[in-house]
Design a protein around this nucleic acid. Sequence first.
DNA 1: GTCTAAACGAGACGGTACGTCTAGTCTTTCT
DNA 2: AGAAAGACTAGACGTACCGTCTCGTTTAGAC
Lengths: 199, 199, 199, 199
Amino acid sequence: MTAKPPNPQRRSQRSHDAILAAALDLCTEEGYGHLTIEGIAARAGVSKKTIYRWWPSKGAVVLEALHEAADVAVPHVDTGDLATDMRTQLTAVITFLSPPSHAPLAGVIADALRDPELAGPVHDRLIRPRIEEFEQRMRRAQEQGQLHPDADLDVALDLFYGPLYHRLVFHLGFPEPPYLDKLIAHVIRALTPEKSTRN
Amino acid sequence: MTAKPPNPQRRSQRSHDAILAAALDLCTEEGYGHLTIEGIAARAGVSKKTIYRWWPSKGAVVLEALHEAADVAVPHVDTGDLATDMRTQLTAVITFLSPPSHAPLAGVIADALRDPELAGPVHDRLIRPRIEEFEQRMRRAQEQGQLHPDADLDVALDLFYGPLYHRLVFHLGFPEPPYLDKLIAHVIRALTPEKSTRN
Amino acid sequence: MTAKPPNPQRRSQRSHDAILAAALDLCTEEGYGHLTIEGIAARAGVSKKTIYRWWPSKGAVVLEALHEAADVAVPHVDTGDLATDMRTQLTAVITFLSPPSHAPLAGVIADALRDPELAGPVHDRLIRPRIEEFEQRMRRAQEQGQLHPDADLDVALDLFYGPLYHRLVFHLGFPEPPYLDKLIAHVIRALTPEKSTRN
Amino acid sequence: MTAKPPNPQRRSQRSHDAILAAALDLCTEEGYGHLTIEGIAARAGVSKKTIYRWWPSKGAVVLEALHEAADVAVPHVDTGDLATDMRTQLTAVITFLSPPSHAPLAGVIADALRDPELAGPVHDRLIRPRIEEFEQRMRRAQEQGQLHPDADLDVALDLFYGPLYHRLVFHLGFPEPPYLDKLIAHVIRALTPEKSTRN
DNA sequence: GTCTAAACGAGACGGTACGTCTAGTCTTTCT
DNA sequence: AGAAAGACTAGACGTACCGTCTCGTTTAGAC
């Protein structure tokens, strides 16, 4: 028999908020690697037990904190120009992945690479929604004639975002704006079937 | 005064090899997350001190083990057809990043995301050489007319490998062969300037 | 800021008792020199942290175990005959300092010789109470006319117990009963001022 | 087959002397408890192997160093007055057992309490010769009529030196000169049979 | 005066235990 | 019942020495 789950209705909002705030603060101050459940509990003025009652790991705490922050931090805009909007969006993501704010997300990514229990929630709560926003933006671009109607959106996702994470995991440095523009142009061209060939 | 470094000439080859082998074995068996210096020492029949004498962290041990394995595992071939060869190469990388062999590399990547001391060596010893092999292959493709002479090799790297790591870090699953071919075709087209425009 | 001390009210009696028992057992079985904190923790089924939380060293653990045992092991009796009672008491002390039970006390004495942090508690908790019991017995002997009223109790302590420890530290062997009686007789005579001389 | 012993004729006098000097220096500076074979080797500019070749333990090293020093430090003198000479001698011993010079002897005593391998040499090389010097002095006192011819020299040893070691092991502080005189007087009286009684 | 075997310095090695740290669980007390 | 406080078991951390074991390098007795 596994322990019965706590009753969410009796949950303390104060503790919940203090824990997420403490986690983000400590993560930024000391780095994800030095973040501990004990440290979060102490900073939040909360019992360790309370954290373990509601989250299975420190990664899950930070994930939830990120989840709350992500919507406002990296939204997709629509000015009517796809290349411009993707540059805006990718720049926002790069900022999120670069010092000084990179610690929480990079840390959760790192933990999820080794902890399948964390990988699931990361995908479902953090990534899936972002991918759907991306695909909505792409479909709007197709409707507006900024992107070919036959463009494969999976490929688009791979080519637009792939470079960022390749560079993240191998510490290759993120693209400077001019190179970013070039990259975006290449990707958009890749997504546009050649006019002259085949049929 | 920092402790003086040990004399590499007196290093025991037996211990060195046993440590790397034990690290890889345990990593595969139990997962990188359960890998410990104590466990490596015990499995290798070696003193913990000997590991700490030569490596600063468990990540550094696994990195060196990977380094020795990488050349043979993911070589670039040249059959004369770029798309085919890239599929071969990317498939090898995907195999390296997928179960059951993914643990060591994924683990080192995860650790390097949080430990700058590890990130440097990962870049220098593991990634840089692979990038150079890749660029050599690309240049040969340019000489053979398989790739446009003006193609930007940095963009090529980003577009060929980016998708793999984006999918790795967010657990999106690796591309199946048909999709991989499609992706490669898109990338090669992206690297080929349109005939009709500009120059 | 030094670490704040733990709250003694919440201390686990079970762990406390198991630790002292394990320490004494191991000390007797393997010898004080082979006694380790790790060994005590393992035998007592206790975390090392718990030992370090309440005692500063293995010597302190054994000291407390001895402290609990000492009252019952080496009491002063009063049959009305001082020489007889001292022989009883000294014999008990000799037993305590001889194999097979000598390890804990000899070990603590040895550690205290090199560790001032341990020497204080040894004196306060182990020796001081024994000295007071001894002095009470001496004063009763004076009241009963078994010992001269002017006898110096510090000298008495030195002469009664000194020989034991001189012999202990230099491994000279403890006195056999006949010699012990002789020694006690000498000491009692030394404490009795000569009737005929001086004044 | 146990390792064949080294050839004493080829022993390096330089190393031998440097080791004993380093041992005493470090013992005085840092305390016997912080003395290590590694530390002695480093200070003496000598290989650890060289120490282990000639001594079985750090206690044995310090013992030999003490042995060389003891003859000059605590000699028995003969001015013709036993009480005076014993005060001189006991005062010298007290000095040897008190800070700042107490560390080596106290340390060796402590180690010998737990290491039978060390206890033997301590007794044979350090103590036995001192006891013999003491007994010679006592016999001379008997010849000179300063001590009763029937006085038991074993009792004399116990009563003269016992108090020092009782006080040493329990950190009771050593006697001040006035008390020391009193103690000596008591002991000499104890050794002198009463004229009027029994025999 | 070589020659050569032993002692030497240096220090890497397999180990053991240290004392610290954090994880995750459990208990007590308060609200 | 949930939460704060914090003691508990468990076990890895990185360090310090242990005593053993090569390495080359003196060095001293035998040739």
